[in-house]
Design a protein around this nucleic acid. Sequence first.
DNA 1: AACTTTCGTTAGAGACTGTAACTCACCTTA
DNA 2: TAAGGTGAGTTACAGTCTCTAACGAAAGTT
Lengths: 237, 237
Amino acid sequence: MERTGTDRRQRQREATRAEIRHTARRLLVESGPEAVSVSAIARAMGLSGPAIYRYYGSVDDLMGAVVAELFGELTAAVEQARDALDPAAPGDRLLAMSRALRSWASTRRAEFRLLFAAPVPEANRRPDSERRQAGEHFDRVFLREVEALWAERPFPVPDLDALPAGLRAQVLAYTERKRTALPPAAVHVFLTCWTRLYGLLVMEALDQLAFAYTDPEPVFEAGLAEVGAMLGVSERP
Amino acid sequence: MERTGTDRRQRQREATRAEIRHTARRLLVESGPEAVSVSAIARAMGLSGPAIYRYYGSVDDLMGAVVAELFGELTAAVEQARDALDPAAPGDRLLAMSRALRSWASTRRAEFRLLFAAPVPEANRRPDSERRQAGEHFDRVFLREVEALWAERPFPVPDLDALPAGLRAQVLAYTERKRTALPPAAVHVFLTCWTRLYGLLVMEALDQLAFAYTDPEPVFEAGLAEVGAMLGVSERP
DNA sequence: AACTTTCGTTAGAGACTGTAACTCACCTTA
DNA sequence: TAAGGTGAGTTACAGTCTCTAACGAAAGTT
């Protein structure tokens, strides 16, 4: 296949876009979120500020792309942890995935904050935005694994009618939306577990656990153990 | 007691400081966090920008004062809910307090975000900062109430030795630091409950529950019910 | 070789934080 | 009561930011 000049330009362009994202991330990690600016990125790349606008239309646009890329990286890390111990029971895989998630979060604090603990600009909330897509793909990885767990060995679920109507409706809507094979009561348990761990990670990322804990790792482990118990997953020594 | 002119100036000064905080909050609520700037506050007050610096040394300084004031307001709201149904069992009070907390959070979203879901500038992290003081006072209100609950009707606690060493050490340190009468195992349960509800509220404030839920209220209620169960507190119809 | 597209530049508008230098009104004190 | 100090405001400005406009130069296309 012939490589045309246009082709080459396309690749060059994507390389520069990647360098921009990369530089944004480097600044974020090295100097904090307030140091990430179009000017600073350009400066670091030896360009003048306005040049960046050839590649990204605005700051939100740029940061949305950075976030999407990071979601991809995080998803890959979780999937790798999952597959590393294949063949294994879905329960064990879920534990490994959760730990991979926290490990990523705690070794990449600045990035994790950006993903989960920073206000999302209006523009990046549209369902078709790169950011949303990447975020939903990430969620799905966990949902899929819980589906596998349920298929292999169903965990105890509450009676759906025992849930307050307001909650039940939302769980049903989510079940519908995600087209999952899981029964709604199991979806509810999944969401409870998920928000539980998620909440701990978000608090950790925001330093909101510091009022009580200096090292969040065992706190997460304790939460994970409780969540595991709900799903009928227990540690094997 | 004679009112001197200096006295009058002091009061005038504090009045202006209050107006500045007030205006900052109004801008935050009406136009979002990015609209809060020294210039905008000054403009809204009919002053020129630099005038504000007579009253607060920097943006962080100013916002720290706003946050401290909001913590005071939130604490008062929780205390009021607690006292409104006195005499009552500590369990019922805890439920009322938790609901007051969420009610405050959801009717004052922008403010709650500022308190619990925004990065805390370095300067406001010093233990003697106005912000820290106000935050710790707030935490204590809940701890006190759990102490009362424990005194009246102890809830089940795990064996302290069953906790992983890393977690146990931190719980012991916290128990020590807070000089609470609660045994460490009970402190652990308290912290677990607290971070649970807290996590939900922080996620709600950051719109991180939106991936699954449109209305966080029943989600919080469900969390509260679980937490209540742990503390041996159940709803009375 | 001429035309088009893309990538870079500089200039600049309009925000922002914060500093400097100044005026003016008020308070204290001799 | 006049003199001097203090504090609250002002304008001017330095330096940051985002983003637009206008232009030149290089690369690709025909």
